[in-house]
Write a protein that binds this DNA or RNA. Structure first.
Length: 431
RNA sequence: GGGGGGUUACCCGAGCGGUCAAAGGGGCCAGACUGUAAAUCUGGUGGCACAGCCUUCACAGGUUCGAAUCCUGUACCCCCCA
């Protein structure tokens, strides 16, 4: 590792609003003195990372770009336990098979964000590797001995759970902190790691690791937490009505991913630009300025969506997302497109098969079409939708709920595009 | 063990013999406005063969011309006394 690091890193993080708390006032100076090994943990509780993981992942990336060495720690062991921090109820435990498969795919995803290639590149470690052989008695003697219960009880993550009367805290979850603390100490001992970053809900776990390092080895360790990103209404960022926004293109298509960022509210978009893009300060401040003059142009949202989508899905994914967006929201009728075009643009839109004969005979009512396509859960709902003017075929409003579909309604060789309201689409495809 | 209260649509919650598919609010869906926003306003929100019919008010029975509403039993929840 070259000895050079970017001395601006901490200032940049501060300007971006990514610093919530630090464990030591000398930390900014300490960071400029040479390359450090920094780690953040990711629980493999799902098959894919989601937008909620992105802040930590991108912060690791910023450290890497500034000349430090990141470790992405996958919590194969801790994921079996479940972190009680910020949770109101007990987690379900995952099987080892699920965990193993999750770890694989998460590793895959991280490669577009961190550079793992060279010998000084990022490291991906799984704490299951060093925890699996750790005996209970040994662990209690080595690690547990260093944890005063009164200190553990005073941690916010534990305290808040104990104060709830409607859900308890199992001994298993209570022990989570020891495992994460030990991770830090382990990484320090074997990989020279001296800094842990995480969301502000990780403060308790991070300081536990720092305390443990000092008690066991007299090590001096550091920690930084970032604010948890919430929307104006207090709900967590990264969730839509349909659930989490995933990084995996199988779970959230590049189009849907792009749309998520494009729809970020004016109040949040400034923060998002700072958190989720590498855009320099000047560019972001220009966008702030532009937004205060005419937020309706949505330059900030477009730039944000573009940057983040490119990072996660690459240039090709971004192009697809933009093409689909333009087609879907240009407003005019959908025509002069081929099956291939439509199926590509509407890649992740739900679709249903219908019989060609049904269409030719005019046997399919428009009400049934919306139900079959899954846009409406009952015929009554479909009827209401049409009566209220919220139903479109190939982007043209249909007002007659008695209408039957015919071959004239095909947008291309075999596809009919149904639309509910402004943003929900479905395809009917006749064979 | 004794006494009292409760269980209503996705959620909260009114209804306490007919006019109840069931007030009100939240959520959700759609429309207007707009920027594919926010806020606001309007309409909708059990199903269907939709001016009508069918199935709903914890569950099972009963009384009645007629029950979410009354009675009996069952399950679950809460409170008070022991």
């Amino acid at each position: 590792m070259s000895g050079k690091v970017d001395p601006q890193l901490f200032d940049d993080l501060t300007w971006r609003g990514l610093i919530h708390q630090t464990t030591d006032e000398n930390l900014p100076k300490w960071l400029t003195e040479g390359p450090r090994v920094v780690y953040a943990g990711f629980d493999p509780t799902a098959h894919s990372l989601h937008v909620g993981h992105l802040v930590a992942l991108l912060t690791l990336r910023r450290f890497q770009k500034a000349g430090h060495r990141p470790i992405a720690l996958i919590g194969g062991a801790t994921g079996m336990i479940g972190d009680p921090s910020g949770r109101s109820d007990e987690r379900n435990l995952l099987s080892t098979e699920e965990l193993e498969s999750n770890v694989q795919s998460i590793h895959q995803q991280m490669q577009s964000v961190l550079k793992f290639d060279d010998s000084q590149g990022a490291m991906l470690l799984n704490n299951f590797d060093w925890m699996k052989g750790y005996g209970y008695l040994t662990f209690l003697r080595d690690i547990g001995k260093n944890f005063p219960v009164n200190v553990m009880l005073s941690k916010d993550s534990v305290k808040s759970r104990l104060e709830r009367t409607d859900s308890g805290l199992s001994y298993t979850e209570f022990s989570y902190m020891l495992l994460q603390a030990y991770d830090f100490v382990y990484l320090n001992k074997y990989h020279d790691c001296t800094l842990q970053i995480g969301g502000s809900d990780q403060w308790g776990n991070i300081t536990a690791g720092i305390d443990l390092g000092r008690r066991m080895h007299g090590a001096t360790l550091f920690g930084i937490t970032s604010p948890l990103l919430t929307k104006k209404d207090g709900t967590k960022m990264g969730k839509t009505a349909d659930g989490a926004v995933w990084l995996s293109p199988e779970k959230t298509s590049p189009y849907a991913f792009y749309q998520f960022w494009l729809n970020v509210g004016d109040e949040e978009v400034g923060t998002c630009l700072r958190y989720f893009t590498d855009l320099p300060k000047e560019t972001i401040e220009e966008l702030d300025q532009s937004r205060s003059e005419d937020a309706g142009r949505r330059e900030s949202q477009k730039k944000l969506a573009e940057e983040v989508t490119r990072l996660i899905h690459g240039e090709a994914g971004l192009t697809k997302a933009i093409n689909a967006t333009e087609t879907l929201f240009q407003g005019g009728p959908i025509e002069n497109l081929t099956d291939k075009d439509l199926l590509e643009i509407f890649h992740d839109v739900p679709r249903a098969q219908i019989e060609r004969g049904q269409l030719n005979q005019g046997e399919l009512t428009i009400i049934d079409a919306f139900v079959v396509a899954g846009l409406c859960s009952s015929k009554g709902e479909a009827r209401r939708l049409i009566d209220q003017g919220g139903a479109r075929i190939n982007n043209e409003v249909v007002s007659d709920s008695q209408k039957n579909l015919s071959p004239d309604d095909l947008a291309s060789e075999s596809v009919i595009v149904l639309k509910k309201g402004k943003k929900k689409f479905a395809l009917l495809r006749c064979e």
